[in-house]
Design a protein around this nucleic acid. Sequence first.
DNA 1: GTGCAGATTTGCACTCAGTTCCCTTTCTTA
DNA 2: TAAGAAAGGGAACTGAGTGCAAATCTGCAC
Lengths: 205, 205
Amino acid sequence: MGLRERKKERTRESVSATAIRLFLDKGFDQVSITEIAQAAEVSRRTLFAYFPSKEDLVLHRFADHEGEAARIVRARPAGQPPLEALRAALLDALARRDPNTGLCDDPEVMAFLRMVFETESLAARLTRYTARGTDALTEALREAGLDPLDARLVAAQVIVVQRELAVMNQEFLADGATAEEHHPKAVRAAERAFDLLRDGLRRHG
Amino acid sequence: MGLRERKKERTRESVSATAIRLFLDKGFDQVSITEIAQAAEVSRRTLFAYFPSKEDLVLHRFADHEGEAARIVRARPAGQPPLEALRAALLDALARRDPNTGLCDDPEVMAFLRMVFETESLAARLTRYTARGTDALTEALREAGLDPLDARLVAAQVIVVQRELAVMNQEFLADGATAEEHHPKAVRAAERAFDLLRDGLRRHG
DNA sequence: GTGCAGATTTGCACTCAGTTCCCTTTCTTA
DNA sequence: TAAGAAAGGGAACTGAGTGCAAATCTGCAC
């Protein structure tokens, strides 16, 4: 990795970190691109070379996790149903207090998620990011032998359920609970959600 | 309804219709607000008084249907499970070739949906619109006696499944099928989707 | 009819996101 | 070390959206 690459990586990281710091401080809509560029000591033009839009300064963090669900399905032990692999992965993520589960009470992480969910343009674009994750999961479920129609429906359901669970966890933490306190409840909710996916509403409702 | 109200309604309709005509003609991103305002013979400023953003010129059509699912659940016959009411409503909408099901082969409707799904900013914002529909359905499901957690999970699943079905129908029509030809397949897909919601993946997959 | 109060429309100037064009700096590599 | 490519920079531009004050229209009372 040459000097050029290293420098780019550092610049990219620095710009994003500067931006997020300012956003958390003053609110996403209250910070202009110009302000970020000045604080990060690059030109506006360079900033846009790294991040095609203001939203991407924030959301690129989610982009990395985009294909997570598909990866989990592909990497599951032989004989394990895809849904059980996804369930196990979610429970594991909850245990690790993975920020993506919404069950992480680090103040900075909470402020970050709060900003994303409450800023209209960020929330809208995040959903588009996750759409690509849904496509990837659909493909993985097909490889796992599901009927194409089922694969698509189940993928959409799994992704949307994971999102709802994360939002709910986040809400409880915002109401003052610690991750520690809320963990059992989060686990029960996750189990319930995957039970519903596996067994349907009839057997539970 | 006074003259003032009627005139406002007419202006609103005229502005939106003009905008959509131009969008379908040249593409959403290729038409400026200024151009729309001139064509509709109002000032830019007035246009923004009616529609707070460019996207709203298109998406206000969806806003009306936002609470549909919640309404259906509330209006269901006594004793009918909410899910069955939603299933029946969807089958009925398919039979009516309701544009919201994606099973309407009117060229203008198809061009409209195509534009919405393919324009990044429209698709993103549409998802936000439907989020409010999800909230309304959640509430209706709670009233119907579902556990709050289940209500939220099921609402999210129903809405996302309806959307996927509509997109799939739209894809088939875009590939040249007529609504007539595709209708049986659309019905089977809808039945399958609601079977999955009711019985879970285990009993089918 | 006339006039008045409040609602609506309009033009203008402004901010900010995002793009384009073009030039300078910096790194790579042969 | 020189040529060439990649990255950075600056200025000017387009287009969305907003704030403000002046102009216009409507509903209503007289």
